[in-house]
Design a protein around this nucleic acid. Structure first.
Lengths: 193, 193
DNA sequence: TCCATTCTTGACTAATCGTTCCAGAAAGAG
DNA sequence: CTCTTTCTGGAACGATTAGTCAAGAATGGA
């Protein structure tokens, strides 16, 4: 045997995710990635393949990390409406906190590449389905627990919520007006009443 | 005096808009633009300046053309709800008709550049305000004509509608499932009931 | 007709792109 | 120690990028 990797592969991928997340695919250069990942160029190619492959791995990593956050939030016992409010309000707060306004990596990928790259489209599609499923399960639970009234097409509501979340995240990239974003959240969540 | 331009400047800008619209800023090369605009490289630089300046002019053109369409639709006498349904349903249909799935140029610009380019941010911001205004006026009219019930914060609803429209257009880029998009439209417009 | 001006064309920068190659350093196994 | 393997760093690759230059064609005015 010989020496093992001197850098943390997970950490490097996480850094790559941050670069692609904030700059997008085209605008992120290999040099940017090498710099931010803290590894050298050759290690990048040896470990992750080419730029496109690295992008897809970063997208997968994003889905694991951020998807899990969303699932946990929605599956946490307690008020479903409260969890949803937290989900949406978190986007509003986030757009003022870190000041990076990088939106949702999945949404960015949809916008930049979904129409042009099959692998990206597959990932964003399956992410839509997964998120929609989590929202649907949460709504079902809300209905069972009497918090959300019946008579609604909950599958449609779940789809609506995901689409609205993407819309909100896009708006948060463009405007710094908090009131605008909070108005959007207010009306969006009013469909649950 | 000397000879005048041999190409139609408006037409060339329109072509440039189409290129940036479907490929985005980074992925559109000058060669792509030259090819699609049907003019030579030097004429492009002489007439429109550099790539960035051309992009901003294309964005302005988009706003004129597509913004006008939206304004006319919303100001047309008759049912406001019907006009809004037409606006949203048009996005759904459009994503199946041309097969280009290029989304909304403004939304694309928000996603790709708003956080990184001041001029783009200014344009997307002002477009948000203009669209929100048009939606607000339509809602006011709907209220006056008794079609939309009072007691709602119509400014907030207008903001919500624009955000939802952007979300829908993003979803339309990622999924080819018509039912998903129609579910989103259905629930979105239900806030008007 | 001739001149002045501007458009068109294609070759041409200099820089950057993603990617590969290679030589040497580092580290585990014997 | 030696051998083998892998990691590292920098130089280099060809392709492509945005943008420029210069020479010639075309046009309108006198």
């Amino acid at each position: 045997m010989a020496r093992h990797k001197e850098f943390d592969q997970d950490e490097a991928l996480h850094k790559a995710m941050e670069v692609f997340w904030s700059r997008g695919y085209e605008a992120a250069s290999i040099n940017d990635l090498v710099r931010h990942m803290g590894i050298n160029r050759q290690s990048l190619y040896d470990t992750f393949g080419d730029k496109h492959a690295l992008y897809l791995q970063a997208l997968d990593r994003y889905r694991e990390v951020e998807g899990r956050k969303m699932f946990e939030l929605l599956e946490r016992p307690g008020s479903v409406k409260k969890a949803l409010r937290q989900l949406f309000q978190g986007v509003v707060e986030g757009s003022f906190c870190d000041g990076q306004r990088r939106g949702c990596f999945m949404g960015n990928a949809m916008s930049e590449l979904a129409g042009r790259c099959k692998e990206t489209e597959a990932r964003t599609c399956s992410n839509i389905a997964a998120a929609e499923g989590a929202l649907y399960r949460a709504l079902l639970r809300g209905k069972k627990e009497g918090e959300i009234k019946g008579g609604r097409d909950l599958r449609a509501v779940a789809r609506f919520l995901y689409s609205s979340l993407q819309g909100l995240q896009l708006m948060a990239k463009a405007t710094r007006d908090r009131k605008t974003l909070e108005d959007v959240v207010k009306v969006t969540l009013s469909v649950l009443d």
